[in-house]
Computed example of a mutant assay.
Amino acid sequence: MISAANQQEYYQALLDKKSEYEGVFYVGVKTTGVFCRPTCPARKPKIENCEFYETAEEALLASFRPCKRCRPLSHPNQVSDLVRLLVDAVEDNPEKRWTNQDFQKLSVDASTARRQFKKRFGMTFVEYARARRMGLALKQIREGDAVIDAQLSTGYESSSGFRDAFSRIMGAAPTRSGHHHILKASWLDTRLGPMMAIADDEALYLLEFVDRRGLEREVERLRLRTKSAIIPGYTAPIRSIERELGAYFDGKLTEFKTPLFLLGSPFQQEVWDQLLRIPPGRTSSYGEIAAAMGRPTAYRAVAQANGANQLAIVIPCHRVINTSGELGGYGGGLSRKQWLLNHEKSMSAARKEEY
Rank of each mutant, 00 (worst) to 15 (best):
S160M: 11
S160L: 07
S160T: 13
S160N: 04
G161E: 06
A165F: 06
A165P: 04
F166T: 00
R168E: 13
R168S: 11
M170I: 13
M170P: 07
G171N: 05
A172W: 08
A173K: 10
A173N: 10
P174E: 00
T175W: 15
T175I: 14
G178A: 09
G178F: 11
G178W: 12
H179A: 11
H179Y: 12
H180S: 05
H181Y: 15
H181Q: 13
K184G: 09
A185H: 11
S186H: 07
W187I: 11
W187G: 08
D189L: 15
R191K: 14
R191D: 12
R191M: 10
L192W: 08
G193W: 04
P194A: 07
M195S: 06
I198W: 00
A199V: 04
A203H: 04
A203V: 00
A203L: 03
L204E: 01
L204C: 09
Y205D: 02
Y205I: 05
L207W: 06
E208F: 09
R212A: 10
R212F: 10
G214V: 04
G214F: 06
G214S: 06
R217V: 11
R221D: 13
R223P: 03
R225P: 07
T226D: 12
S228T: 03
S228K: 02
I230H: 07
I231C: 05
G233C: 05
Y234K: 14
T235E: 09
T235D: 11
A236V: 14
A236R: 15
E242C: 10
R243W: 13
E244M: 11
L245I: 06
G246M: 04
F249K: 02
D250M: 13
D250H: 12
G251M: 06
G251C: 12
L253H: 02
T254A: 12
L262E: 07
L262Y: 06
G264T: 02
F267P: 00
F267L: 01
V271Q: 00
V271M: 02
W272A: 02
W272H: 04
W272K: 03
L275P: 01
L275Q: 01
L275K: 01
L276T: 01
R277Y: 04
I278T: 01
P280G: 02
G281D: 00
R282Y: 11
T283N: 10
Y286C: 13
G287R: 08
